[in-house]
Amino acid sequence: MRAAYRKGIDRKRLRENLPLLIMFTPVLLFYLIFKYLPMGGLIIAFKDYNFMDGVFHSPWVGFANFRKLFSDPNSLNIIRNTLLLSSLSIFVGFPFPIVLAILMNEVRRMWFKKVVQTLVYLPYFYSWVIVGGIIFSIFGIEGSWLSHLFVFFHVEPFPFLYDEKSWVAIFVGSGIWKDMGFNAIIYMAAMTAIDPSLYESAGMDGANKWKQIIHITIPGIAPTIILLFILSMGRVLEVGFDPVYVLQNPAVSDVSDVISTYIYRVGLQGAQFSLTTAMGMFESVVALTLLLAVNGIARRFQRGLF
């Protein structure tokens, strides 16, 4: 150890390191300025920030911002919405890529597999504005595809995007639709690592496709499933800004207003920097805690991430 350390500072290694350090400096600066400096900026969550005094000279207020957040029914509702929308997206959405990967794994016609893959990966690359445009063209109250269908059958059009329950369903569904294909890639990669002889011998023993999936494919990708589940725990209090901002409307704001849109509206547009920083910090701390907790549980089963 000691020898290795001494070797570490010898001249040859320093000479080798010099160009690498020069290369690395801009990147290090990026992380310090744009990632770690904002973490330091979290102190304004404990201050009453104003433009005149700046980050350093604004007065300290302790936990007042947090107390305000957790006593205000409006911000509590926003936390509740965030939790609801993200857990629905995580738990309802989680099986979809797995099922898709299993189905694709069973396809033997390569051209068919290629065509399906090409199509299902595509929505992942759409921006939420595009997805929003598609959603409106299908579910919109007037002039949309479904509204024409309603007119055709002489039924009163249903306001899908203006009803809280159907809005939540569309929100969760569009997220699943967008990411399902792309997320399936990881599971399909895991499946290529399964020994094909397992399927052969199972087939010999008379196991049908269904049994092969249950007893070979799913156990084979279980580590990947657990890994991705741990990672998704870090997002349990995180609902992206774009989907909500694009799909929301005043009629559903009681369920659609989430932390990210709250920070944008109240923080950036309403200039309440300290209060919304406290909200953002709450989100980050919960994410970190959950990630560590779930990882701890997974580690008990030798499946931990770190």
Binding site: G8, L20, F24, P38, G280
Partner: peptide, 30 residues
């Protein structure tokens, strides 16, 4: 590069930013 100083430290420092961030407002202030 295996000979790079503190590569493990730098890597962890970067990964940490994936799970904990300063958030929108502090980044905006920077």
């Amino acid at each position: 590069r295996p000979q790079f100083y503190a590569r493990r430290f730098f890597t962890l420092m970067m990964i940490f930013t994936m799970i904990f961030t300063g958030g929108v407002i502090p980044t905006f202030l920077v």
